[in-house]
Computed example of a mutant assay.
Amino acid sequence: MTMDVTIYHNPQCGTSRNTLALIRNAGIEPTVIEYLKNPPTREQLVKMIADTGLSVREAIREKGTPYTELGLDNPGLTDDQLLDAMLKDPILINRPFVVTPMGTRLARPSELVLDILPDTRQGPFTKEDGEQVLDAQGKRLV
């Protein structure tokens, strides 16, 4: 299937790998952007966050990042300050963001990507941790 899908991917992240595999299970080969090497522009990041309906703070990754060391847990920081930190150190951008003509999602958990993909799934899918997401007919289980 031809559909313009972009995933902001971290190959070291299991959730990101599962999301990429779910996109491919739908018969779509997405544009894969390894955002740690090629971060989005400020405008792209602002748009992605807005399109998901999340706040900037909800789009920050805390685990495995310098979030606390940088004092980003300070509730007085503005969105602009948080965005500056995310762009300076892209590991702070939560992942994976997926952009399709059907919408944008922060695919955490990975099966949230199914909400913005066509119903063209090709058989079963089980996450790396063993959780089955799609049955043999490609029907969503979770």
Rank of each mutant, 00 (worst) to 15 (best):
L45P: 00
Q122Y: 04
P30H: 03
P90A: 12
D79I: 10
G76C: 08
M3D: 07
Q44Y: 03
R108G: 11
T19L: 05
Y67H: 13
N25A: 14
N94K: 14
D119T: 11
R121L: 13
V133N: 04
A85K: 01
R61L: 03
T78W: 11
N10Q: 08
G27M: 05
M102V: 05
R17Q: 14
V142F: 11
D119E: 15
V142D: 02
K63Y: 09
R24T: 03
I7W: 01
M86W: 05
V46C: 03
Q122L: 13
R61N: 04
R24L: 04
G71S: 13
G76M: 12
E111Y: 15
R140A: 08
V113I: 15
M1A: 13
I60W: 00
Q81G: 10
Q12C: 06
E29S: 09
L112V: 12
P90Y: 11
A59R: 00
P30G: 06
R95Q: 08
L83P: 09
P11L: 09
I49P: 00
D115L: 14
Y67W: 13
K63W: 04
D51F: 02
C13A: 11
D84S: 14
T19D: 08
R61F: 04
L72P: 00
L141E: 09
L36Y: 02
S16G: 02
E111H: 15
N74E: 09
D79V: 14
I60Y: 00
E111M: 10
Q122G: 05
T120F: 10
E58F: 01
E34T: 08
M102H: 12
